[in-house]
């Protein structure tokens, strides 16, 4: 029973980070109808920038969020303005391939600069844990989960209360009607890409606390992001949170009761099942 509870608790904590990591992908798809394969690049850049700031200046990964958020926004908005925007009228697969190219460039640049070795980042609290009744919870996971939830609250308020937030939602729901109401659709596209990338890069900062730093980081977590976004309903903020937590729990249950080696298979299975069920829905 205690085993099950701690597996559930740890699954929930990881799941909130999964949701945070994935949301940008859904946001960009919702607003631009573009599948952002460069999401993997931004996740990987996030962990590397955080790791580099930590080893070079001793900066805490949580503090580095102050850098990865604006940096991610600037890079994302630039990619949209300089690359994605030019392919506005091309078939979706062109943009998909272009963004895949961006990811490959970033990944290989990281191999070139830092080599292929797995690295890890240690802080004073990396191995600390907290006893809650019979459960033992990892401090970094608690912190990271708290930051993810905070990120979701800020995002939800932004979407609900600010002009930019309303404009983002309007463009996602009916682009032409948004233009007719004076919303500058081109600028909203860049802002959406910027926010999505800022989320991915800062997710990298958070995740550097308990995942190893490698150029393949993005490959592993891009797939999980897809899984969460497809399950959660693309732009639905609550749905994505639930889907992230669901995936976190499913993975931890699998790792504990079946085998750790099967952890990463879960997202494949869930993604396949979700797509098959969607298919059945639309038939």
């Amino acid at each position: 029973m205690v085993d099950l509870l701690s597996v559930l608790a740890s699954g929930i904590l990881v799941g909130t980070v999964y949701a945070y990591m994935a949301y940008g992908l859904g946001l960009i798809y919702g607003v631009l109808r573009v599948v952002n394969l460069a999401h993997g690049a931004f996740l990987t850049l996030g962990v590397y920038v955080t790791w580099w700031l930590n080893t070079t200046f001793g900066m805490d990964p949580l503090v580095s969020i102050l850098i990865t958020v604006p940096l991610g926004f600037a890079l994302g908005a630039t990619v949209e303005r300089t690359l994605v925007f030019r392919l506005r009228d091309s078939p979706p697969v062109t943009t998909l391939l272009l963004l895949f190219g961006v990811w490959l460039i970033v990944r290989n640049a990281l191999y070139l600069i830092f080599g292929g070795a797995d690295r890890s980042l240690l802080t004073s609290y990396s191995l600390e844990s907290l006893a809650v009744g019979p459960l033992t919870l990892s401090i970094p996971r608690l912190i990271v989960s708290g930051f993810s939830l905070l990120g979701f609250v800020v995002l939800a308020l932004m979407l609900k209360r600010t002009w930019s937030g309303l404009a983002l939602r309007a463009v996602a729901q009916d682009r032409e009607a948004a233009a007719l109401s004076g919303v500058p659709v081109n600028r909203v596209w860049a802002v959406a890409f910027g926010i999505g990338s800022a989320l991915a890069m800062s997710a990298g900062s958070l995740m550097s606390l308990f995942y190893s730093v490698t150029p393949e980081f993005g490959a592993r977590f891009l797939l999980k992001s897809f899984c969460v976004v497809v399950l959660g309903g693309l732009t639905n903020i609550g749905g994505i949170l639930v889907a992230g937590i669901g995936l976190g729990i499913a993975e931890d249950l699998t790792a504990f009761y079946i085998h750790t080696g099967y952890r990463d298979v879960v997202s494949f299975l869930v993604l396949t099942a979700a797509l098959v069920m969607r298919r059945a829905d639309s038939d």
Partner: peptide, 17 residues
């Protein structure tokens, strides 16, 4: 062509963008 997943008040507010 209203935005279906926004409230009526939000639709109106954004009209003043």
């Amino acid at each position: 062509r209203i935005w279906p997943e926004m409230t009526v008040a939000e639709n109106l507010r954004l009209g003043a963008y």
